[in-house]
């Protein structure tokens, strides 16, 4: 079970959305991190055969992304997906099941199982247009799993889910990652931190990091500091260093920042998290842009 991306590039005119991305994905959960416009959705769309790469190739065990056999083992949840207004949740599932080539009897069984799994069993006969954002998202997750896919691509799957649903979803993905390739993108860093075996970081169309949480965090290990300082010192530090967090405290301004050496006298070195890394990378980008 191997999904191979070989120097995959996508250009829109002179803009490079994805730049020579090479990856080999095996069983497990992969988390894709990146700011808006980093190229995450473009990469996912190319992996699902929706967009054709400008150059490079994508294949699963030697089967090219453009082939029916590839789509047969694929499950995809787009960032935004529509639905036909007259559809109930059950109609939607049965319709997608037909597109995935499931026979009617199998489709009925899978629909019942999956609607129960995403807690929509009681809403199966209700029209989707009456659903909340979270319910639609759960339905989207259910449809992606109809064909028991070997490759599951989820673009912002936790958007619109409440904390309880997110925890359930994370547990489900962790279980499913044992025997398939799961790639998910999200802005909620803690989701990726909890479930991804491998984290991929994209910036300006390029894959800048790939590795386990520990390997990724290594970049800023020992560089995250916390301190509480007066307002004027806080302003000076904000100018100089990437700030992860800022909060007004009784004794002054609390700052969490990234710096190679101790930024001020009372700064305390703390454990780095993925969120620190994410904010560090993308605040550096903003700071560079502003300059």
């Amino acid at each position: 079970m191997e999904l191979t991306l070989d120097r995959v590039t996508k250009n829109y005119g002179s803009k490079i959305a994805c730049d020579r991305i090479s990856l080999t994905l095996t069983k497990g959960v992969y988390g894709l991190l990146g700011a808006n416009g980093a190229g995450k959705t473009t990469l996912m769309r190319m992996m699902c055969g929706i967009l054709e790469p400008t150059s490079g190739s994508i294949s699963y065990d030697g089967i090219d992304v453009s082939r029916e056999e590839y789509r047969d083992v694929l499950g995809y949840l787009p960032q935004d997906f529509g639905y036909y207004p007259e559809f109930t949740a059950q109609d939607f599932m049965m319709y997608i099941a037909a597109l995935k080539g499931l026979p009617k009897a199998k489709a009925k069984v899978r629909t019942t199982e999956l609607l129960e799994l995403v807690s929509l069993k009681n809403e199966a006969k209700k029209k989707i247009k009456t659903f909340s954002g979270g319910m639609k998202q759960r339905l989207g997750i259910a449809q992606a799993m109809l064909n028991d896919p070997k490759i599951l691509v989820l673009d912002e799957p936790t958007a619109g889910l409440d904390p309880k649903e997110r925890v359930r979803f994370r547990n489900l993905i962790s279980r499913m990652g044992a025997d398939r390739i799961i790639l998910l993108s999200t802005h909620i860093v803690s989701d990726i931190e909890h479930i991804a075996d491998t984290i991929l970081v994209m910036k300006s169309g390029q894959l800048i990091h790939s590795g386990s949480l520990d390997e990724i965090i290594e970049v800023i290990r020992g560089k995250v500091w916390e301190c509480t300082v007066p307002q004027d010192v806080a302003d000076m530090l904000t100018e100089k260093y990437p700030i992860i967090n800022t909060r007004n405290a009784a004794e002054g301004v609390f700052l969490r920042l990234v710096c190679d050496k101790k930024p001020c006298e009372n700064a305390v070195n703390t454990e780095a998290t993925l969120e620190d890394l994410y904010l560090y990378y993308f605040s550096v980008e903003e700071r560079t842009d502003n300059k």
Partner: peptide, 14 residues
Amino acid sequence: MYGMTELETACRFS
């Protein structure tokens, strides 16, 4: 019309 193209394109019968 109903924004289903992306979902449908990624299915076996695309």
